[in-house]
Design a protein around this nucleic acid. Sequence first.
RNA 1: GCCCCCAUAGCUCAGGGGAUAGAGCACCGGCCUCCGGAGCCGGGUGCGCAGGUUCGAAUCCUGCUGGGGGCACCA
Length: 555
Amino acid sequence: MTPDQLSDAIVAALNAAVTDGDLTLSDGVPASVRVERPKVKEHGDYATNVAMQLTKQAGRPPREIAELIAARLAKTDGIAAAEVAGPGFLNVRIDAGAQGVLAAEIVAAGDSYGGSDQLRGVKVNLEFVSANPTGPVTLASARWAAVGDSLARILEAIGADVTREYYFNDHGAQIDRFALSLLARARGQEPPQDGYFGDYVDEVASRVVAAEPDVLSLPDADAQEVFRREGVALMFDEVKRSLRDFGVDFDVYFHEASVHESGAVQQAIDRLTKLGQTYEKDGAVWLKSTDYGDDKDRPLIRSNGTATYIAGDAAYYLDKRQRREFDRVMILLGADHHGYIGRYRALSASFGDDPDKHLEILIGQMVNLVRDGKPLRMSKRAGTVLTMQDLVGTVGVDAARYSLVRYSMDATIDLDLDLWARQTQDNPVFYVQYAHARLASILRNAADLGLAPAGADFDPGLLSTAREGDLLRALAEFPRVVGHAAELREPHRVARYLEDTAASFHKFYDECRVLPLGDEEPTPLHAARLLLVAATRQVVANGLGLLGVTAPERM
RNA sequence: GCCCCCAUAGCUCAGGGGAUAGAGCACCGGCCUCCGGAGCCGGGUGCGCAGGUUCGAAUCCUGCUGGGGGCACCA
């Protein structure tokens, strides 16, 4: 019996109490009740605080309400006991049998276990990373790559139709500075003060020269144009390649330059003007973003006639909303962009959208580096920027992605380079992957013995020890964890869940022999435990899949 | 000055109003005749401060302290 099924049973009990005239609820019976796993074993398999929640509208003490539910619940199939405790908690024990059937259900569901139809039919556009093509993907961007892709996978698991999107800022001043920096390095000069530094600038510059040998004999403006075009193209390739190596495949790489070249920017501004959302002042065209809660109005067209960055955003946002009629535009940004929220919401509202419904901007905190216990300061100028590829090269894709996704986005994380570089069991990803390898190994050994997991008609009551019960309850949690991770946009919950579940499995393994010992005859218990192993392996594999981390058969 | 995030064990971090606040690392001590010891078992210290809401607060609200990041006709 899963928590959701228990919730249904409790609702049924409440309905029965009302029908019998034992209970009156002014707001009616809730559609579902909150069921949680108690921290203490003595409090049963599951507990609910619904009686306390209903105290007001029932006009009766919580313990009395809990008694009414308990009496009816105790008669429900699959429930071994229901007792009232403390101020009005209802503690429930599930029949071992009702719990054990889950193992067969999970194996039958396979890859789909954990998913749901919660967001079926919802089209989501999820933009993340979107780093400028003026350098390699940095460690900070790697966090959004890991978190964004995992979030996309989790949303897809609950039915959403997700488009992963990357916005290349390949237009504007920073691109000019990049081109100038390349030109300078190609000539053996220092890049400008506000230019780009680091070895990769030299590399890109020499690759451009190799491809276009006569570039250095061109006039400055023409040479700069060649370096801009070729340099940016090389960076595009580099960015795409490192993301692919990281296991992140974007559906759309959108180029900022395209909305400027196509006239989409002007169309977007015209539209805003027609909607009465702009005005002219000091020779510039402004968006009345303060009407929608922004700190200040934002210029769309500068007094020199050129379009601003936010004008490109306007066109891009409009494109996203119209291209496939996305229900929701989600954007993952670093904390240094949090000031961006106000103007973007105002932009959305200016087009007549509801920013609370159509737009969602997620802010994640930064990644710091620590070495020898001391913070390591990255400097773009000195060229000491740690890249995603550096991280992957040091710890591997699995550990890199896992380490970046296992923390709450709200928390700044300190990655200890030495620790991750050591690649020892300090890294929790090994704990989870090891559990999967161990599970796979048991299944391999069973196959060698000609032993198959029990079928759907097995006796679930065989899985009755405390460790088996703990493991089954952990497996039963998975769909809820995925649902919560999706709803709260918190992929790290999946990682933490996997660590807990791996621990439950390791404990089960330590106490419960799965395969026959020596020449012992296989029994139904062996087959039942093997089924539990198969179910556990499935859950661990599904969970790792949501994080974009491999589930190894062997390590 | 204004805005956002954070503050929980020696360290890195979990903890969606619930009962006795958890995990990993580190430290000490146990467990391999057979399914992977990269594992398991035992040992202990903590919610920055002050108010408020609530039957109940690490969790929600306010103020303060400390840390991080932002507040361009840059992108």
